[in-house]
């Protein structure tokens, strides 16, 4: 999604109000943006705390400020600066974390971002965008540009299977249709299930939904999804994020408070930063039971038994 993101911002570079800050990242990726923005492209160096406070101060003056880094360096290192300087003041700084979840795979746990939106959504007024497909980025950048609140963009890699027609970007989208359980997946993870789910018979095929914006309080569930949850044998949430404080926690609370509890609830989530071995994003997803094979097992658990 990074190149799409770069292209989308290049498209906005004619706006003199746009400022872009990076924590010394973007080599072999953001050069076109650097060229397009000139002095409004600010490499703040390896100093993320300062970058975030500077971004807050620039935003306070009305600039449209984007602050970019590898995801954990963008939200974990400077968390207090995000909290005190951006969120307390409700400033519409756009935090951009490249490589959400396990995207940096074998690079090691320092580069994994599996508690990003959980911690950020504890802050007042924070908005999170986790686009599903690379093709979403243009629309998401437009959303963020007009966002009046602090926001965080979790970039990853989301590729649809060949021949799949990607629905137009929205906070909530249904990606597969069937008579099976309901599955909600956060961000690009959703795109990894489409191919396998499409091959299932309709009786087992889940109604797969992708959520791309949080919190739920600002992006309530569509009525169609609520209706499916009430009638389905189970609701399953898959997210490349730790269990505590993730999307499923908020969803469970939302459903409980609304008296709309599903019949059964399953949660697939990122297990930990500290496996003894490392590998690709796909490898780490498998260790966390986020791979399509494990999801298929969950679907089979609730499949109608043949007579």
């Amino acid at each position: 999604m990074r190149s799409e993101f770069c292209n989308a911002l290049v498209g906005r570079s004619g706006n003199e109000n746009v400022l872009f800050m990076t924590g010394d990242l973007g080599y072999m990726a953001l050069e076109p943006l650097q060229e397009a923005l000139g002095e409004r492209f600010i490499n703040a160096g390896v100093a993320e705390q300062n970058m975030i406070s500077v971004a807050a101060a620039l935003s306070r003056q009305g600039f449209e400020v984007w602050a970019y880094s590898i995801a954990p360096f963008c939200y974990a290192r400077p968390f207090e600066q995000i909290r005190n300087d951006i969120a307390f003041n409700d400033l519409p700084v756009k935090l951009v974390g490249n490589g959400g979840g396990y995207a940096y795979g074998v690079m090691g746990p320092s580069h994994h971002a599996i508690e990003d939106y959980g911690v950020l959504l504890t802050l007042p007024n924070m908005r999170v965008y986790a686009p599903v497909f690379n093709e979403d980025i243009s629309a998401v950048v437009n959303c963020l540009s007009s966002e009046l609140r602090p926001s965080y963009l979790r970039l990853g890699r989301g590729e649809a299977p060949d021949g799949y027609v990607i629905p137009q970007y929205a906070a909530w989208r249904q990606l597969t249709y069937g008579d099976g359980i309901v599955i909600i997946a956060v961000g690009p993870l959703a795109s990894t299930y489409i191919g396998a789910f499409e091959k299932l018979p309709k009786t087992q095929r889940p109604n797969l939904w992708a959520v791309a914006q949080m919190p739920i309080s600002a992006n309530p569930l569509p009525s169609e999804l609520l209706s499916q949850i009430s009638s389905a044998p189970a609701l399953c949430v898959a997210e490349e994020h730790v269990k505590r404080g993730g999307f499923a926690s908020e969803l469970a609370l939302y459903l409980a408070e609304g008296g709309k509890m599903p019949k059964q609830f399953r949660h697939h989530y990122a297990l930990a930063h500290t496996y003894g071995t490392y590998g690709s994003q796909q490898f780490l997803r498998s260790l966390s039971a986020l791979d399509e094979g494990t999801l298929l097992s969950t679907i089979a658990e609730f499949a109608p038994t043949s007579v």
Binding site: I42, Q49, N50, I52, S53, V54, A55, A56, A57, L58, R60, Q61, Q81, D85
Partner: peptide, 8 residues
């Protein structure tokens, strides 16, 4: 940092 950002 806030002051430097304001100055910039």
């Amino acid at each position: 940092s806030l002051a430097a950002g304001t100055a910039l």
